[in-house]
C-alpha cells in the first residue's frame, strides 16, 4: 500500500473539558476528492485547524506525504503544500482582489527585501510574474474583472470564490475547503460543483471538503467521512453514507431523499 497523501493518525483536540475531535483516524490518497460532514459543532473545522497548524492536536499526529506536520507552524504547512479556505470568510479586507491572491503567491517568490526597496529590475520582473500568476487564478475563478476592486466590494458568492483563488495561488497539493457552498443559492452551488471538479483536474489537486449542502457533497465526493461529537462515526462512498443508519440518526435525518 502506498503512503496516503494525508493521514490523520488518531488525532484528538481537547479544549479544556471538551474533546472537539476525538481519536479521529483518516487517510486521504493523492487525487481523491473527499468530504467531511457532520452536525454543527461536530468538530469539522477543528480538524481543518489541526491539519493547517492553527492548533496542534493534543494527541495523535498529522502526517502529510509521510512526514509529520502537526506541531509545525501554520505558514510552514501552507508553504509545504496545504492551503485552505475559511468557513467565516477571511479576506484581506483593505486589499484589492488581485492583492489578496498575490499574498498567497508570495512564498513562491524569493525577491529579497533589499531588491524590493531598491526596485531592481530583477525585483520588477519577479513582481510582474507574481501579479500575472495571481491574475491567472482570479481568471480561473471568473473574477478577472474585479482584479482592482477591494475584496469587500464583491458579492458574497464571489468572496467565497476569491477565497478559493487565494488558496490556489499557494500552489497546494492538498486543498481544504470549509463550507464553500454556505450561503450560495442553488444555481451558485451548481456552478461551484463544476468549478471544484474543474480545478481539481486542472491543478491535479487532492481536495478535502467540509459541506452541509448534501447535494454538493454527494454530487462530487468520492468518499465521505462523518463526524459526530468529535468522533468519526462512518466512512464510505456517498451511497454507503446515505444508507448508514448511524449517519441518518446523527445527521441526515429520516427524510433524506434516496
Amino acid at each position: 500500500m502506498t503512503t496516503p497523501l494525508l493521514h490523520l493518525d488518531k488525532i484528538t483536540m481537547q479544549f479544556g473539558g471538551l474533546k472537539a475531535v476525538s481519536e479521529v483516524d483518516y487517510a486521504i490518497h493523492k487525487g481523491e476528492l473527499v468530504g467531511l460532514i457532520g452536525p454543527n459543532g461536530a468538530g469539522k473545522t477543528t480538524v481543518f485547524n489541526c491539519i493547517t497548524g492553527v492548533y496542534t492536536p493534543t494527541q495523535g499526529k498529522v502526517m502529510f506525504e509521510g512526514r509529520q506536520i502537526s506541531g509545525m507552524k501554520a505558514n510552514r504547512i501552507a508553504c509545504g503544500g496545504i492551503t485552505r479556505t475559511f468557513q467565516n470568510i477571511r479576506l484581506f479586507s483593505r486589499l484589492t482582489c488581485l492583492d489578496n491572491v498575490a499574498v498567497a503567491a508570495h512564498p513562491h517568490h524569493k525577491a529579497g527585501l533589499a531588491s524590493a526597496i531598491l526596485q531592481t529590475p530583477a525585483f520588477e520582473a519577479d513582481e510582474k510574474a507574481l501579479k500575472a500568476q495571481a491574475f491567472e487564478m482570479l481568471d480561473v475563478l471568473g473574477l478577472a474583472d474585479y482584479a482592482d476592486q477591494p475584496a469587500t466590494s464583491l458579492a458574497y458568492g464571489q468572496q467565497r470564490r476569491l477565497e478559493i483563488a487565494r488558496a490556489l495561488a499557494g500552489k497546494p497539493r492538498l486543498l481544504l475547503l470549509d463550507e464553500p457552498a454556505a450561503g450560495l443559492n442553488p444555481q451558485e452551488s451548481e456552478e461551484l460543483m463544476t468549478l471544484i471538479t474543474g480545478i481539481r483536474k486542472r491543478f491535479e489537486l487532492t481536495i478535502l471538503l467540509i459541506e452541509h449542502d448534501m447535494k454538493v457533497v454527494m454530487g462530487i465526493c468520492e468518499r465521505i467521512a462523518v463526524l459526530d461529537y468529535g468522533v468519526k462515526i462512518a466512512e464510505g462512498t456517498p451511497v454507503e453514507i446515505r444508507s448508514n443508519p448511524k449517519v441518518i440518526e446523527a445527521y441526515l435525518g429520516e427524510e433524506m431523499p434516496a
Binding site: 497548524g53 501554520a74 501552507a78 492551503t83 475559511f86 477571511r90 512564498p107 524590493a116 487565494r166 488558496a167
Partner: peptide, 22 residues
C-alpha cells in the same frame, strides 16, 4: 512589493495570512 503586501495581509487578518504561508 510582495513584502508590503505580506504586512498588509497581517494587518487585515493575521490568521488568514499565516494560513497562506506568510
Amino acid at each position: 512589493s510582495t513584502h508590503g503586501r505580506a504586512l498588509f495581509a497581517i494587518r487585515d487578518d493575521e490568521i488568514a495570512a499565516e494560513a497562506l504561508g506568510v
